[in-house]
Design a protein around this nucleic acid. Structure first.
Length: 478
RNA sequence: GGCCCCAUCGUCUAUCGGUUAGGACACCAGGUUUUCAUCCUGGGAAGCGCGGUUCGACUCCGCGUGGGGUCACCA
């Protein structure tokens, strides 16, 4: 196969917002296609009409774009293998299902959902794996009459008895299942829609997909697909099952039960798309030199699905935070200002933002940290007396405050330098303990013991605000 | 429970039969600094167990154990 024949795809279903795990898999598909000069296809698998969420297709496209990625063929882009939305390809699935019937590889089934349910219940009670009992498989004449009489039916795959099905996973090597553990999978549902299993195989083949990179949770349904490829007598694509993301506590697949998991939610929480992508890159895969901060281009250059770890990986938020901080620090102040805008509270004066950013830039781990790091710049603050007096007595602190207020009042300028001059000379003149005095002023003017550099902060807060806070602090001493 | 996958520091990884088992995050300590952060330096921290194969196993094989996935007319 020529490199240019590499065609990868991501096939989300519009049942809600895209999961971070899906974005991680999407990135790998994207990168591998780019690396080989191939095509990355976006296909929408909307074959479950009950679970479909209106607007989800648009949101899927938007989130991919928001992460800075795109697709070569798919909704909104077109392509030679369209349409790329499965509900617009219905005829194809029906034809293929019928083809299988003709070949004797599939059969009609009129079992009711109720019958199937009671069957499963009794199997579970008997502690045997729940599976269809192939009731209709050998009574096709009867089934045909029932269908003619208007009964609902599905088309099932005629899974061979007790036969090994083997396929090669790019990361794991040969994987074998016995058909004894494989159900007579429904291919065409009673509402006429194909199931996932029929639709993926038909589409991956008809869209000429060369590499199927998907989550590890699909391994156990891969033999069903292999059976279908055999039944259709089609060539098989390369399968590569990617590690799934485990909850930060290491227990189980990342799920909504343990926090928000949509790709969008991470953007909402103040993570940069580039940082998220970087995190996905090094989760389960390592750069040849173990470089951990890398650009999309560097990733594309080095990424190979066969080098990906075959074990599930914990979604380590601490590492993500670190990466995000790195990316934020790499931003220019104007870029930061643009990106952080959605996280600036309405109550924060817009004109102050550009002044505050240089002071908090390297303190930001997430864009959403803005609020926490800047509350004391505006409005009324709480001045904890215990912190104020921590390393001195009330009378000494009162004296320091009085002198500082006078000194600042008399100063005609309000620059970082002028403030520093006043405070430093006061400290030297009275021989005050520098750490105590500086910290006391910090607490008096911000209410906090951890802030950006003191004089810059004071300058930004402004003379009236600082004097007011110092006077309030003075009152607290009495 | 059946079937399948997986197994190196707490986490993500390097190693691809011969290494003092390396790096990163996190953690701890120190330095720089008016605090915090950044930055710099240092430290603790790992081959799941038992058998084989081999001159030699983290590396190959088997079993056990543990973790994960999956068992729908959902994807």
């Amino acid at each position: 196969m020529k490199n240019t024949d590499v065609r990868t795809r991501m096939a989300p279903s519009p049942t809600g917002d895209m999961h971070v795990g899906s974005m991680g898999v999407l990135l790998k598909n994207y990168a591998f296609a780019k690396k080989n000069g191939g095509k990355f296809i976006l296909r929408i698998e909307d074959t479950d009409k009950e679970r479909e969420v209106p607007g989800a297709i648009g949101r899927i496209q938007d989130i991919i774009t928001a992460y800075g990625l795109d697709w070569d063929e798919g909704p909104g882009k077109g392509g030679a293998y369209g349409p790329y939305i499965q509900s617009e390809r219905m005829q194809l699935y029906t034809d293929m299902a019928n083809d299988l019937i003709k070949k004797g590889k599939a059969y009609y089934c009129t079992c009711s959902r109720e019958r199937l349910e009671t069957l499963r219940d009794s199997q579970r009670a008997a502690k045997v794996p729940p599976k269809y009992d192939k009731f209709c498989r050998d009574r096709q004449d009867e089934v045909s009459r029932e269908i003619a009489a208007g009964k609902d039916y599905v088309i099932r795959l005629k899974t061979p008895d007790n036969q090994d099905v083997t396929f090669t996973d790019l990361l794991r090597g040969k994987i074998t299942f016995n058909t004894a553990s494989i159900d007579d999978q429904v291919l065409l549902k009673s509402d006429g829609y194909p199931t996932y299993h029929l639709a993926v195989v038909v589409d991956d083949h008809s869209m000429n997909i060369s590499h199927i990179m998907r989550g590890e949770e699909w391994i156990s349904s891969t033999p069903k697909h292999v059976l279908l490829y055999h039944a259709f007598e089609w060539d098989m694509p390369v399968f590569a099952h990617m590690p799934i993301y485990l909850n930060p506590d290491g227990k189980g697949k990342m799920s909504k039960r343990k926090g928000t998991v949509s790709a969008q939610s991470f953007l909402d929480r103040g993570y940069l798309p580039e940082a998220l992508l970087n995190f996905f890159m090094i989760l389960g895969w390592a750069h040849p030199e173990e470089k951990e901060i890398l650009t999309l281009d560097e990733y594309i250059q080095h990424f190979d699905p066969k080098d990906v770890s075959s074990k599930s990986v914990v979604f380590d938020l601490k590492k993500l935070d670190w990466i995000n901080g790195m990316y934020i620090r790499q931003l220019s102040l104007s870029e930061l200002e643009t990106k952080i805008a959605p996280f600036v509270p309405n109550t924060f004066p817009t004109e102050m933002v550009s002044g505050v950013l240089p002071l908090i830039h390297e303190r930001l781990e997430k864009l959403s940290d803005f609020e926490e790091l800047t509350t004391f710049f505006i409005g009324d603050i709480e001045i904890p007396t215990d912190l104020l007096l921590k390393k001195s007595t009330a009378s000494d602190v009162a004296q320091q405050l009085e002198q500082t207020i006078t000194g600042l009042e008399e100063s005609t300028d309000w620059t970082i330098e002028s403030i520093e001059t006043v405070i430093r000379s006061l400290q030297e003149k009275h021989n005050w303990k520098r750490n105590q005095y500086f910290m006391m002023i910090r607490v008096a003017t911000t209410g906090k013991k951890a802030t950006p550099p003191l004089f810059e902060t004071m300058q930004l807060i402004g003379k009236p605000g600082i004097l007011e806070r110092l006077r309030t602090a003075l009152q607290n001493c009495n």
